[in-house]
Design a protein around this nucleic acid. Sequence first.
DNA 1: CCTATGCATCAAGAAATATTGGTTGACTTG
DNA 2: CAAGTCAACCAATATTTCTTGATGCATAGG
Lengths: 106, 106
Amino acid sequence: MAVATHDRTERAIELFHALSDETRLEIIELLRKGERCVCELTDTLDAAQSRLSFHLRVLKDAGIVRDRKDGRWVYYELDPEAFEEVETLASGMKPRVPGRAESCCA
Amino acid sequence: MAVATHDRTERAIELFHALSDETRLEIIELLRKGERCVCELTDTLDAAQSRLSFHLRVLKDAGIVRDRKDGRWVYYELDPEAFEEVETLASGMKPRVPGRAESCCA
DNA sequence: CCTATGCATCAAGAAATATTGGTTGACTTG
DNA sequence: CAAGTCAACCAATATTTCTTGATGCATAGG
């Protein structure tokens, strides 16, 4: 339901920011092997639980991961769409014009 | 060997971080139209010169932008390779396995 | 029930980033 | 050469982001 108020640039910032942290990239790398519960992530990454929780939230807010609750556990998994979005964004940032500037302020 | 002091993850962080700021994305958007001198960027973006200079350096250090000095002016332009790098990184982050986890810590 | 576990959330402090204003050096022109 | 312009850099401050150590809620099992 959330849309507008959320333009292209803000979305790019949100995505890129979520991807610009070591812990979060480690989480992503782990999740590439498939869904994992938080407890396994904290074990593997040897990080405090609240720290993990913080980063998982950033990833989730950015739409990079999804969570699923099952009993006592919460499982996280990657959402591949987010990465396609990044690819599209990056692709759309390439220069449209090759040439050089003809003297600017001159 | 200490892989070029610059491993894959650090590189990803540098690139994504450089792209996670509004001013920098605005600069990139402007440069998509071609090379520009700093003075034109400050005019167009209505930003203090030292602020622009700061962000241009972040972009340059990340290899997103190249500069060329000509007389009194310094021209900046995008380096398309950086965006391809981002695409590659994003592509390489997609999950390798689809399935769900079979009860973790249980 | 009572206790233990898994996880989100919060407040406080630490650390990293960004902004501002000022200074400096390079270059150009009168 | 003097004066003005362009842009990098620096130090101080402001702002954002991250970490840590509670605390609380939900669920599961004895």
